[in-house]
């Protein structure tokens, strides 16, 4: 655990220095950090707990909309609306899980698509709630301590804090009782139950935490875009990208989802600027290559090799 915390400290130190070193590459870094945070939050449920959700964009959209509507309609500062979004996301996660956790494996995943798509239609069609299909602008934001929240530097630090808090949460949970419960349920719900763990309660807690954390990142994303439309914020594609990031990086590992964000967002940006309209094709090929040659995800594969080496050493001595 200390090892991971030191790693997080190093990441934070590097992050704090980043805007001074690369002042003109902040947007892409913000994307990496937001995806790192989202994928790590997703992984609490999808990786550590084994419940693969393909509906997490709902929580991103929820957070972004709380911030945008709160600011433009009620003049509420984003920190209040993000807290409200997190609470609301947890409640939504509770009911969502209550509805669908009787399903297992791919059936659970499919049900999350259905719920998320229904929420997307609600966000598009209910004008009174979201402002409807034409979207919402964030025109003004408060300036805490004179900080302009519209500046990319401020947004970078928000995204950095978000990613760090999520990763820290996972580090703590990985060593806590709750973390063992999560994994026990993932491996075998029936044996977990026999060991006195309530699988449904465990899954619900994981879903609520995952949803709440994701929505906070969504709030930051709303501020970064400053103009949001429901199609984009609640898109199935975004849900899939979040899951993809975590799985490519390595599910159920502390650093996997963050590594996935770095690789996927970074590669996506590199392909975009070099391959013009072929870039998504090459991105697809990259995904296939990772799946075929690194099936456990980037960090998952590294960890496996590391463990193998340890065993090999022990066997020798």
């Amino acid at each position: 655990m200390t090892k991971h915390l030191i790693g997080l400290g190093l990441l934070l130190a590097a992050g704090i220095a980043y805007p001074a070193i690369f002042p003109n590459n902040l947007t892409i870094a913000i994307s990496v950090l937001l995806f790192a945070g989202w994928a790590t939050s997703w992984d609490l449920l999808g990786g550590w707990n084994g419940q693969v959700s393909l509906g997490h964009a709902s929580f991103v959209g929820l957070g972004a909309y709380f911030v945008a509507i709160g600011q433009s309609q009620f003049g509420l500062a984003p920190w209040w609306t993000m807290a409200m979004a997190a609470a609301f996301a947890a409640i939504l996660g509770y009911f969502w899980g209550w509805l669908t956790f009787s399903l297992r494996g791919p059936y659970f995943s499919l049900s999350t698509i259905a719920v998320a798509e229904i929420l997307r239609l609600v966000a598009i069609n209910e004008d009174w709630l979201t402002g409807g299909a034409t979207g919402v602008f964030i025109a003004t934001l408060p300036e805490p301590f004179g900080i302009d929240l519209f500046s990319r530097t401020a947004q970078f630090y928000m995204a950095l804090a978000f990613a760090a808090v999520v990763i820290a949460t996972v580090i703590v949970i990985s060593r806590a009782r709750f973390g063992f419960q999560l994994r026990a349920v993932r491996e075998d719900e029936d044996s977990a139950m026999a060991a006195g763990i309530d699988p449904t309660a465990t899954k619900l807690k994981a879903f609520m935490l995952s949803a709440a954390l994701t929505s906070i990142g969504g709030g930051i994303y709303g501020i970064v875009l400053a103009f949001i439309e429901p199609h984009v914020m609640f898109a199935l594609l975004l849900s899939v990208q979040i899951a993809l990031t975590a799985i490519i990086g390595g599910r159920g590992t502390i650093w996997g989802p963050a590594a996935g964000a770095l690789v996927l967002v970074g590669a996506g940006e590199m392909f975009r600027t070099t391959f013009a309209e072929a870039n998504m094709l090459i991105y697809g090929i990259l995904i296939l290559v990772v799946v075929l040659f690194v099936p456990r995800g980037i960090v998952g594969e590294l960890a496996r090799r590391h463990i193998r080496r340890l065993y090999a050493k022990r066997a020798q001595s």
Binding site: R251, G284, I287
Partner: peptide, 18 residues
């Protein structure tokens, strides 16, 4: 792990579409 196949089909989907 079952998600690998899902991921592979996602990659195939991107490749076909593009």
């Amino acid at each position: 792990p079952p998600e690998s196949a899902l991921l592979a089909t996602l990659g195939i989907s991107l490749i076909i579409g593009n």
